[in-house]
Amino acid sequence: MAPSAPPDTPSVVTPAFLNWPLRDLRAWVRLLVRAEVPILASTAQAIEDLRAREDDIGPADLSPVLRADPLMTVKFFAHVATLRRNDDATETESITSALVMTGITPFFKHFGPQATVEDRLREYPAALEAVQELLHRSARAAHFAMAFAVHRSDTDVDVIHEAAFLHDFAELLVWCHAPTLMLKIRQAQAQDPALRSSVAQRSVLNIELDDLRQTLLRLWRLPKLLIRISDGKHADHPSVQNVVLASRLARHTMKSWDNPALSSDVEALSKLLNASPRVTLAFLHKVDGSSEP
């Protein structure tokens, strides 16, 4: 089921794949708020396994399952937002606290068996491979972001970790709806490693995925702190810089540490961490070595 759309936007069945770009950001948003949001097959199966023993589990059992899937995380937070009054000043900023608020039985009642990314992209193995790579990159970014936040003694470590993990959820959604267009972007960047992602996205999709992410986060009324920390176009706050740099470093070091863009990333991170570039690079290697395979 799709996260709730505005009252005048009826939910519809997920449309066929797009082979041509939509006109603008408004058109992309209209498509995605109406469409089903698929989740990972592993998440869907884990939810069904827990559903079978619904009376014996609590938020601590369900929370790790939802938190491990960026699409399910967004989908759940969007649902939670619909349960709040518009004038409600309080927000749940963690999945566990949101589950405590909603309750386990209402969760399972609202979220029946879920459509999956793997089923959606069954006929597009190259796109599914790209999605798996993107998920690995998101986990890597979250690992970097948490390490930076702990080093800085930041008070919002969990939200920073979550923001970095969710950084690419809009890209995941577009892969699910327009795999041929996303493969076109991938091919263009493979042919020209210097091609900036934002330029390639505007050329092929008529939008930048960062704009799509922020619009959907606001429309689905995710926690305000999470939205603010996710907004890389206003990176004047250390927490935002943390997420931006973690995501950038995850992308630039996915395959090796020889990416020419790495030096500028390290220079920017050294300023955030108040350390020399040499010390910062050593710290990055240490953090990378401590990540789980």
Rank of each mutant, 00 (worst) to 15 (best):
P238K: 00
A46T: 10
W20I: 10
A142V: 01
P15H: 01
E93A: 14
D158F: 06
E267Y: 05
V100Q: 14
L262C: 04
S42C: 09
S247Q: 12
T105C: 06
W257S: 00
L25D: 02
A127G: 09
A46P: 00
P179T: 09
I227D: 08
D69S: 07
V244L: 12
P113D: 07
D24N: 15
V74W: 00
P38Y: 05
K224A: 12
A235T: 00
E48Y: 01
A81R: 10
L281T: 05
P113M: 06
L212Q: 11
T155H: 04
E36D: 08
L205G: 09
P3N: 07
W28F: 07
F165I: 01
D119A: 11
R122W: 03
T82R: 13
M182I: 10
G103I: 07
A142H: 05
P193R: 04
R51K: 13
G58E: 14
I185L: 09
W257E: 03
V131G: 08
A68T: 05
Q132N: 14
D211M: 10
P21D: 11
S94T: 15
D168V: 05
L262V: 14
A16K: 09
H237K: 13
A164D: 06
W257N: 02
P223M: 04
L249D: 00
F108C: 11
V13P: 00
F76Y: 12
K233H: 10
P260L: 02
D8E: 13
A200M: 08
R84C: 03
N19V: 07
L40G: 09
A163R: 09
L273M: 13
R84H: 15
N19S: 13
L66C: 00
S291L: 08
R152Q: 10
